[in-house]
Design a protein around this nucleic acid. Structure first.
Length: 947
RNA sequence: GGGUGUAUAGCUCAGCGGGAGAGCACUACCUUGACAUGGUAGGGGUCACAGGUUCAAUCCCUGUUACACCCA
């Protein structure tokens, strides 16, 4: 017995377990022998994250595709896993340490801190995967991967080493986006420029040996401590004669040149700009062009460092700004302050910390080279984006791609496989101050040691965890710090003079591993093949790579999609996927981005609890129209919850009426028009749902299923079947019972990808009667019903529906009580109408609530009349109906028909139209005109009969 | 500043070169043996604005306005 109400909370867990027990998610489950493969890799969520509505949408779509293809018999793999999410995870654990008043990260030290992170991962890393299970995700959990798994780490090291060997990864001292809170470099993409009310300070810089001064304008006066020049436009008449002269930097007293550079915009500010190469990206370029040495005035925490005058040292950059402005003002160097909207770079995550351009040694990937094949793939259509417009976004970014800073000054992540040692005296770069230490890049420490031994010609020793001990390390410590940019040319000169390595001759050469880790996206970029076992040539890799579709949000098109393309092509020479389906952002009802601070976050787990996973999934699918953000309205969720209920009750009705599946039932064998019709309609719905999913138009698939199930099956078929099911014709009843059961089976299949739980539950319930079910719904076959359409039955049922709707409409308009059974008289019926009335009599009487049906030749006065086909249907309601209202109703319809005819006549009267429009369009218009005129005549006749 | 997208019923959104659609909300009626999380009927729209292309434009093109997003 199907329970009276469907309770998702009670059913979902049990159904999910039954899938697990049946091993239905395993790669290849339910596949036909030799089947085509279909694989998707999950965009790995942050391991410590929890499910938000974006994940819910993303994974619902993937699960729909996976379940659909699995049912179509393909050999399916949905590869799940999580990402270690370097910065985010490290921050969470640090915050937890702080909140529980434990020692800080630095106090714990690297090893202990990492142990804590792994602990936290073990504790909470399963959360999001479990939440995906609640959603119904049918991923192959036995193959779950984590970006820091040993295998994936091996892939990362191999990629790093090989790209380094090819010169596509290199170390360089560059300005990077520096996060002073986290004390790490971050990528351009993690910076968000936010318009802020700022100020432009106009400062006077006195010209050396002159009474003149130059006014420079800056939004960041504190950086003047690091100024190394003033730039003016070479064509600017006001300043041209000053180029080559010097100014004396106020406060600092440094004598810096005035250079001519086109970067200075004569229109902007005073036309002269201060140049601070160490603290501004544009200034850095100017510095390169004019050979200006950058002067870094900040510590990694963005406090003023030792290169600035004493009284500023240790000040935070914003405190320093105030003090400098005040001091400049006091000495008369502040000309005026302008209020101005300025773009301030914030960290994209918290939008709290101002990002600092900062000069450091970092590892970079040559993205420009890697991007070329990735661009070509999309240009040549080997990978397509859906919607296609995202290809332009991809091109725009890839064509102007910048070097990718891949190192992060964090602890949680893939430690960079590079070992540093002192430069050998024989090294040609030994005397180059900017050469830095000798680097050995290798996949393993043993390999690095081997390389180092070959370089030094003697034994080496690897030191980890910093270099705090050992006498000989004193000297080496200087090298260690080079990667932190603490080494000044002066100290370097001193070190060389001291020849610290002299005392090391008889000892082992110390090697020290790079302390930094790789950008999280470096390992994510390998995800489609690293999860399948690469670099080993595993059977999974052979079988499931390249994957089919990548389902993701457009916000990570640069972070992730582009980089997977680059790495996939570089290392497997294949596109990692042939299609990239980009879904939109989920917003709230008012179109606002969901955010914790706005307090408008819709928790998908809350939706699942409140409405069930199926309603939640169906809502997301129904709203996932391509290329448009989706605003999640709760009323929609509620509506689809009702849809689940509707389906449930329809199944209950069938069960109560003993609509059992019949072994070997052939839908083609149906005799009754109503059954032939519903079978055909099912076939059309199946085709529409199939097409919708195939074309990634999930909203179309959802609405096709919804309309069919509710609008056709429940609203009409079930109602039409009622008189048959309770009637005396045993044969008709049996056929209808079997057909209804068959159609419900198809419905369950069609809805399954979108609503897996309730459909599987009903599949089980309906399996209790009739022939034994061989399989769970999840691995059953997708409907292929082509060829079941029946035009004749469709016409007949269409006619019946029109007639019933027409009568109901008249009843309501004439205020006939709903319970009243009224007589129907038919006038002018031909053979077709006669046959149809006979065939559909029971249904007609029941649905239109008729007491009798007769053929007549005269119409009683005061009747309501309805024109359908060649016949007119009369409701003799003299005394009940309002004649005036009925006249108005008929006149209104005539008016509308007249309008239509007039419109069509205008068209047909247009020579151009007749000459140029396609024949079928003209023919259609003619048919419509004839029909309208015919109908108008009958209604006019009815009107005449009225009184 | 450059780019992309969106403007259709009160709301949330489909759709589309040839007869304006759904859900919700609203109105009226209905506890009709699956379902009131329901049924029946109904009201409601110059398809943002201005041009253009076309026999024909809500749909294609151009511009304007508004909003959203991306990049600098």
């Amino acid at each position: 017995m199907i329970e009276k109400t469907y309770e998702p909370g009670a059913v979902e867990g049990r159904i999910y377990q039954s899938w697990l027990d049946a091993n239905a998610f395993a790669a290849g489950a339910g596949a036909k022998p030799g089947a085509e493969t279909f694989s998707i890799v999950i965009p790995p969520p942050n391991v410590t994250g929890s499910l938000h509505i974006g994940h819910a949408l993303n994974n619902t779509i993937q699960d729909i595709l996976i379940r659909f293809e699995r049912m179509r018999g393909k050999d399916v793999l949905w590869q799940p896993g999580t990402d270690h999410a370097g910065i985010a995870t490290q921050m969470i654990v640090e915050r937890r340490l702080m909140e529980s008043q434990q020692p800080s990260r630095r106090e714990l030290g690297r090893e202990e801190f990492l142990r804590r992170v792994w602990e936290w991962k073990a504790e909470s890393g399963g959360t999001i995967m479990n939440q995906l299970r609640r959603l119904g995700a049918s991923a192959d959990w036995s193959r779950e991967r984590f970006t820091m798994d040993e295998g994936l780490s091996e892939a990362v090291r191999k990629v790093f080493v090989e790209l380094h060997a090819k010169g596509l990864i290199y170390r360089a001292k560059r300005l990077v986006n520096w996060h002073p809170g986290l004390e790490t470099a971050i990528s351009d993409l993690e910076v968000e420029n936010i318009e802020t009310n700022g100020k432009m300070w106009h400062l006077k810089y006195p010209v050396d040996n002159s009474d003149e001064y130059v006014v420079v304008a800056t939004t960041r006066p504190e950086t003047m401590l690091g100024d190394t020049a003033v730039a003016v436009h070479p064509d600017d008449e006001r300043y041209r004669q000053l180029i080559g002269q010097h100014v004396i930097l106020p406060i600092v007293g440094r004598r810096i040149p005035i250079v001519g550079d086109e970067y200075a915009d004569p229109e902007l500010g005073s036309g002269a700009v201060k140049i601070t190469p160490a603290h501004d990206f544009n200034d850095f370029e100017v510095g390169v062009r004019h050979d200006l040495r950058p002067i870094n005035i900040f510590t990694p925490q963005a406090r003023i460092n030792g290169y600035a005058p004493k009284e500023y040292r240790g000040l935070d950059r914003f405190e320093a700004r105030e003090k400098i402005v005040a001091d400049l003002d006091a000495m008369g160097a502040l000309v005026w302050v302008e209020e101005k909207k300025i773009m301030v770079p914030y960290d994209e995550k918290t939008k709290q910390v101002v990002i600092e351009p900062y000069l450091t040694d970092q590892w970079f990937a040559n993205a420009e080279v890697l991007a070329q094949p990735a661009l070509k793939s999309v240009r040549e259509g080997r990978t397509v984006f859906v919607p296609k417009s995202y290809e332009n976004t991809y091109y725009a970014w890839m064509e102007n791609i910048k070097p990718w800073c891949i190192s992060r000054q964090l602890w949680w992540g893939h430690q960079i496989p590079a070992w540093y040692g002192p430069r050998n005296n024989a090294d040609p770069d030994f005397n180059r101050a900017d050469a830095g230490p000798k680097v050995f890049v290798a996949a393993t420490e043993a390999e690095a040691v081997k390389q180092a031994m070959a370089y030094y010609g003697r034994a080496v020793e690897v030191h980890t965890g910093g270099l705090q001990s050992g006498a000989y390390l004193k000297a080496y410590a200087a090298f260690e710090t080079t990667q932190r940019d603490r080494l000044t040319p002066q100290t370097w000169a001193q070190i060389k003079q001291d020849d610290p390595f002299a005392e090391l001759r008889d000892s082992k050469v110390p090697l020290h591993r790079d302390e930094d880790v790789l950008d999280t996206w470096f390992s994510s970029a390998l995800w489609p093949f690293s999860t399948l076992g690469w670099p080993d040539d595993t059977p999974e890799l052979k079988k499931y790579y390249p994957t089919d579709v990548l389902v993701t949000g457009f916000d990570i098109i640069f972070f992730w999609v582009a980089r997977m393309m680059m790495m996939g092509l570089e290392f497997t020479h294949q596109e990692p996927f042939h299609t990239v389906y980009m879904h939109a952002l989920v917003r709230d009802e008012r179109g606002q981005k969901m955010s914790k601070t706005r307090g408008n976050v819709i928790d998908p787990l809350g939706l699942i609890e409140g409405y069930g996973a199926d309603a939640t999934r169906f809502t997301l699918a129904a709203m996932a129209a391509q290329g448009r953000d989706l605003r999640l309205a709760m009323s929609r969720v509620e509506g689809y919850r009702n849809f689940v209920t509707k389906l449930w009750n329809a199944a209950r009705f069938l069960e109560m009426n003993e609509c059992r599946r019949v072994a070997g039932f052939d839908p083609k064998s149906c005799r009754l028009p109503v059954n032939r019709w519903i079978v055909g309609a099912t076939a059309r719905a199946a085709a529409a749902v199939t097409r919708g999913i195939e074309e990634y138009k999930f909203n179309e698939a959802a609405s096709a299923a919804y309309d069919f199930v509710w609008g056709t099956f429940c609203d009409w078929y079930v109602e039409l079947a009622k008189p048959i099911l309770t009637g005396d014709d045993a044969e008709a009843r049996a056929e209808t019972q079997a057909t209804a059961a068959f159609v419900l089976d198809q419905i369950l299949k069609l809805l399954h990808p979108m609503m897996p739980f309730v459909t599987e539950e009903l599949w089980g319930e309906t399996g209790k009667a009739g022939p034994r079910r061989e399989k769970l719904l999840i691995v059953s076959e997708w409907p292929d019903l082509a060829g079941l359409e029946d035009a004749e039955a469709e016409a007949e049922m269409g006619w019946l529906i029109d007639l019933v709707s027409g009568i109901r409409s008249v009843r309501t308009e004439m205020n006939v009580p709903a319970a009243a059974k009224i007589p129907l008289q038919i006038i002018g019926a031909g053979v077709e109408t006669g046959t149809r009335v006979e065939s559909q009599l029971a249904a007609l009487m029941r649905l239109a609530r008729l007491g009798s049906v007769d053929y007549v030749s005269d119409v009683p006065k005061g009747s309501a009349q309805l024109v359908l086909g060649e016949a007119t249907f009369v409701l003799p309601l003299a005394g009940i109906i309002d004649l005036g209202a009925e006249r108005a109703r008929l006149e209104k319809e005539i008016g509308k028909l007249d309008e239509d005819v007039e419109k069509i006549d205008r068209k047909l009267g247009n020579e151009q139209f007749v000459a140029k429009a396609p024949e079928e369009v003209i023919e259609e218009q003619r048919t419509r005109r004839a029909e309208a005129i015919d109908r108008r005549e009958r209604i006019a006749a009815a009107l005449a009969r009225l009184s």
